[in-house]
Measured scan of single mutants.
Amino acid sequence: INASIYDEIQQEMKRAKVSQALFAKVAATKSQGWLCELLRWKEDPSPENRTLWENLSMIRRFLSLPQPERDAIY
């Protein structure tokens, strides 16, 4: 996982035409506020920051699903 995940998140929300609230809920079981802060600060993903790493790993797993599967989840 690297910093490009933040751009991938924004691209996916645009592509699927979903809100931050919906993306946060389905991709990371988090709130819109959490995702907003995540995208604002764009912390460097590092395994040392375990909570951030685990949350980004969950999002990465969601983004790695085939597009039709992600669309069905939304």
Rank of each mutant, 00 (worst) to 15 (best):
A21M: 10
L39R: 02
I59N: 03
A28G: 06
E48N: 14
P47R: 11
L22N: 07
A27C: 04
A28E: 01
Q67A: 09
A72L: 11
E37F: 05
K30G: 08
W34Y: 03
D44S: 15
E8D: 15
K14N: 08
Q67S: 14
T51C: 06
T29N: 15
P47H: 15
A72G: 08
E8K: 06
P68W: 07
L38V: 12
I9G: 01
S4M: 14
I5T: 01
S46E: 07
S57A: 13
Q67T: 14
L35G: 04
V18L: 07
D7Q: 10
Q20W: 06
P47G: 06
L63Q: 01
K17Q: 11
S46D: 10
K25L: 08
N55I: 11
S64R: 10
R60D: 13
L56W: 00
W53F: 03
I5N: 05
D71R: 01
W34F: 05
L52D: 06
W34L: 06
P68L: 06
A28W: 02
C36Y: 09
I9A: 04
A3Y: 15
F62D: 02
A21F: 05
A16G: 11
E12A: 03
Y6K: 03
Q67L: 13
S64C: 10
G33C: 07
N49P: 02
P66L: 01
D71N: 02
R40F: 13
K25P: 04
K14E: 13
F23C: 04
L22F: 02
A28C: 14
E54A: 11
K42V: 03
A21H: 15
A72I: 14
E8S: 04
W34G: 07
E48P: 08
D7C: 15
D7A: 11
I5G: 01
N49R: 08
L63T: 00
R70A: 02
K42P: 03
E12L: 00
A72T: 09
R70T: 05
A16W: 00
L22M: 11
Q20N: 08
S4C: 08
S19A: 03
Q20A: 15
A21W: 09
L63C: 02
R50P: 12
K25Q: 11
R61F: 06
T29A: 10
E12C: 03
L52Y: 05
K17P: 02
R50G: 10
A3R: 15
A24R: 01
I59L: 08
C36W: 04
A27T: 09
L38R: 04
G33E: 11
E12Q: 02
A72P: 04
F62H: 06
W53Q: 07
R15T: 05
R15P: 00
L22K: 09
E37S: 05
A27K: 02
A21Y: 07
N49S: 11
R15S: 04
D71E: 11
R61G: 11
L35A: 03
L56C: 05
A16C: 05
T29E: 15
L39T: 05
G33W: 10
D7L: 10
A21V: 08
S31R: 09
L63P: 02
L63S: 03
Q67D: 06
I9R: 02
F62M: 01
P45G: 04
S19T: 10
Y6C: 04
K42D: 06
G33H: 15
R70S: 04
I5M: 07
T29L: 10
S64H: 07
T51N: 07
V18E: 01
M13Q: 05
L39S: 01
R40S: 12
K17E: 13
G33Y: 08
D71W: 05
M13I: 13
S46R: 15
L35W: 00
R60F: 01
A24T: 08
I5A: 02
V18T: 03
W34H: 08
R40I: 06
S46C: 14
P68Q: 10
A27V: 13
D71Q: 04
K42Q: 11
W53L: 11
L52V: 05
S19V: 00
Q67W: 08
Q11R: 10
A28Y: 01
A16T: 05
P68E: 15
R60P: 09
E12V: 03
V18W: 03
Q20E: 13
V26D: 04
A27Q: 00
S46G: 08
I5L: 07
A28F: 09
Q11W: 05
L39D: 01
A28Q: 02
Q67F: 07
E12D: 02
A72V: 12
R40C: 06
A16Q: 00
F62R: 01
R60T: 06
K14D: 14
P66V: 05
D44G: 09
L39N: 00
I73V: 12
W41L: 14
A28H: 03
E37A: 08
L22C: 06
W53S: 04
K42E: 11
P66I: 01
S64F: 11
K14P: 02
F62C: 04
E54S: 12
A24S: 10
S19R: 06
Q32K: 10
F62I: 00
K14V: 14
S46K: 12
Q20L: 15
M13R: 02
L35T: 03
R61T: 12
E12W: 01
A16R: 03
L35Q: 00
R61V: 07
P68C: 14
Y6N: 03
N49A: 07
R40P: 00
I73C: 13
Q67K: 12
I59C: 11
K25C: 07
G33L: 11
I73A: 13
Q10M: 03
W53C: 07
R15E: 03
W41I: 13
I73R: 12
L38T: 09
P66N: 04
S64T: 13
K17Y: 08
G33F: 15
K25G: 07
A21R: 10
Q20V: 09
W53K: 05
S19D: 15
K42R: 14
E48T: 13
E12R: 00
A3Q: 14
P66T: 07
N49V: 02
R50M: 09
V26K: 01
S46Q: 09
D7Y: 08
Q11A: 09
Q10E: 15
W41D: 15
S64Q: 14
E48G: 13
Q11C: 08
S57M: 09
V26A: 11
A16L: 04
L52R: 04
N55L: 05
S57N: 06
